[in-house]
Simulated scan of single mutants.
Amino acid sequence: MKRIIATSAAALVVLTGAASAMGAASAYENTIKQFAPEADLSGYSDAAIAHIVNTINDDGDDSFVQTQAQVRSLLKHLN
């Protein structure tokens, strides 16, 4: 249920993109910075940000370190 809500919220941000004064990067910056404090999200698309947030919210059995590694890998490859 948590994953569905998070995915829906991320999709809503992506779909409203230009219509909103706040883009996905600023809306989810704190969430992503918990796992990658050095991240500069200014060059990422809303879709890339949504993908990273979905990875964070897909809490399965991953530890903090595993999620952090996934987030950093996505940041490296999605930009």
Rank of each mutant, 00 (worst) to 15 (best):
L74P: 05
Q66D: 14
A9M: 09
D61E: 13
I4Q: 14
L41I: 12
S73D: 09
H51F: 13
Q70A: 13
I4M: 15
L12V: 11
I56K: 08
D58C: 02
V53Q: 02
S63P: 02
S20Y: 01
I5W: 02
A6S: 13
E29V: 05
V53S: 04
T31A: 15
G60R: 11
A6E: 11
A48L: 04
M22Y: 10
Q70I: 03
L15W: 03
L74R: 12
S20R: 09
I52F: 02
P37D: 10
I49N: 05
F35W: 07
L74H: 12
Q68E: 14
T7N: 15
L41V: 08
T55C: 12
D40Y: 05
A19E: 06
L75A: 10
A24M: 04
Q34K: 11
V13R: 01
T55G: 03
L12A: 13
D62S: 07
H77M: 08
M1T: 08
N57D: 13
T55H: 02
V14G: 02
V14M: 02
R72A: 05
G17I: 06
M1E: 11
A19R: 09
Q68C: 07
G60Y: 11
G17Y: 03
E29Q: 15
T31C: 04
I4D: 15
M1I: 07
L74E: 13
V65Y: 11
T16H: 01
S42A: 14
V14A: 06
G17N: 14
Q34L: 10
I52A: 01
Q68M: 13
D58N: 12
A50V: 10
K76E: 11
S26F: 03
Q34P: 00
N30S: 15
L12N: 03
T16Y: 02
A19P: 00
V65N: 08
S63D: 10
A24S: 14
R72L: 11
A47H: 04
N57P: 00
M1F: 04
R72D: 04
A25Y: 04
H51N: 12
Q70F: 10
I4S: 11
D62Y: 07
D59T: 15
A25P: 03
D59R: 15
N30L: 10
F64N: 06
T7E: 12
H77I: 08
T67M: 07
I5E: 09
A48F: 03
Q34D: 12
I56L: 11
A47N: 00
A6H: 04
E29M: 03
S8V: 07
A24L: 00
Q68Y: 03
N57I: 09
T16N: 11
T7A: 14
V13P: 00
A6K: 06
P37C: 09
I49A: 06
L78D: 00
A9L: 14
